[in-house]
Design a protein around this nucleic acid. Structure first.
Lengths: 256, 256
DNA sequence: CTGGAGTGTTGCAATCTCTGCAACCTTCAT
DNA sequence: ATGAAGGTTGCAGAGATTGCAACACTCCAG
């Protein structure tokens, strides 16, 4: 909508791939070098890009600091964290919190497993949207139309043999998840990792976030993990209650 | 340098303080509402701002994802991490990695203490620049002129009675740190927390990053913590060697 | 139900900013 | 020394951006 800003912002994902010099930036933006220079300068003044010693540009520190503040402002994260930590204490496994935003699902909090075998994931990292339990829950709650459009736009990488293969299968899965009110990912992302997920709802009843407990097969079987479902759902409901303002913000109670 | 982009980018720190509506943004930018709207729209298209259900704008998820990628591209972080983890295994305390960039010092990695008492800090958070051991090391390596200018510009909050009080004291401290090649923070940021820090140097001999081990008084006294200095320095040197390309990237060796 | 205040949104013309060019500078390698 | 490669600057024209004013929408009170 604003050409100049549009171009400037396009530089950011470009640099996210790795450092680049002026010429490369200009070429990929398809603008004159001098134009790219001035855009980079402006980004630089705001600390969003940094010029390293070899004169190449990369993303700057302020970007990281901004993202930091952005996360701290997501109040659902603050509310949820103590609950997630308590759940982790009870079951010992990795606990994740994720939100949906503009065609992406993002982990916004994580409590590490207490077992030595941990799974790879990182706060801020986009989630494997077609297979993760939290992603299914968040997408299942979208309005029908939006859900279909999104499902069509997605790609369906076959991480494993049990990954969701295509849009129709995904939509069926979402329908199921929608009805049962919880979701799983049994080896759909990594062969040996399973997870159980439950939705967190806001005051309007819409799914505002989703949480999950994940563990590798070597620690607990899928069946054993499923026995945690009630606990996970109770935790999610407790967060929902607090987030929607129904429960006073006092922690440690999960009844009405 | 570019007015439009400048204005657009100014919105980000503004939203970092908390969600704001169109009117508030326009007012703080000192532009017409329609202008602010179009800038916000452009930011929105790039996912840097998000419009929440109450129509107010806040920072968006893509910002978090970008920052994530930015950090992963800092190769010093990748190189250092296994060393930091090993150090943490050996001593059990919190280990930090920080870099300097444009008048700021930022934590870019952290390995949590294994003791129950942990300190508050977060990756991506700017460091208390006038007191932290890592900050002293990074600033001490700046060219004399730059160092003085920066020291003058800084503020010197008295977090505790032992915080660095003013620019002259800070410059003296930097001089000392520069000569001895390591630094400490003994209760300068939080009364009960001490840390020992060592520099990581690149191929050109300049300080490229700094690392530290921190622990609260209740776990180890300052004197005990200081006994870790040789270990911390050895770790830092090992990272330096690998980062500057002297040591082959094989981990687990810290001799020549 | 109606009126009005508060916000967000769009079309338009004037203007001011941004763009691309070309020349210049710096650095590095031959 | 000489040339090449990349970075930087001044300038005039082109075109994007701006602020305005009018319009849409929601919410609330009467």
């Amino acid at each position: 909508m604003s050409q100049t800003v549009d171009r400037a912002l396009s530089i950011l994902p470009l640099l996210a791939e790795g450092p680049a010099d002026l010429g490369q930036v200009a070429e990929r933006l398809d603008v004159h070098k001098s134009t790219a220079l001035r855009l980079l300068r402006t980004l630089h003044e705001h600390g969003l890009v940094y010029r390293q010693s070899d004169q190449r540009y990369r993303l700057g520190a302020r970007l990281i600091a901004l993202a930091q503040e952005a996360m701290e402002n997501l109040d659902i994260r603050e509310i949820a964290h103590p609950h997630l930590a308590r759940l982790n204490e009870q079951c010992g496994h990795t606990v994740h919190l994720a939100v949906y935003e503009e065609n992406e699902v993002l982990y916004i909090d994580k409590v590490e497993s207490r077992y030595p075998v941990r799974m790879y994931s990182r706060i801020g990292k986009p989630v494997a949207i077609t297979v993760a339990g939290v992603a299914k829950l968040l997408l299942a709650d979208l309005p029908e139309g939006e859900r279909r459009v999104l499902a069509d736009k997605l790609e369906y990488p076959m991480y494993t043999a049990r990954s969701t293969p295509n849009a129709p299968a995904f939509l069926r899965e979402l329908e199921k998840v929608r009805e049962q009110g919880w979701a799983t990912d049994l080896g759909g992302h990594e062969e040996s990792i399973n997870c159980v997920a439950a939705p967190i709802r806001g005051a309007d009843g819409r799914v505002a976030a989703a949480m999950s407990v994940s563990a590798p097969n070597v620690v607990v079987t899928a069946d054993e993990l499923l026995t945690l479902l009630p606990l996970v759902r109770r935790t999610a409901d407790a967060i929902s209650g607090e987030y929607s303002g129904r429960t006073p913000a006092t922690p440690a109670n999960d009844s009405a």
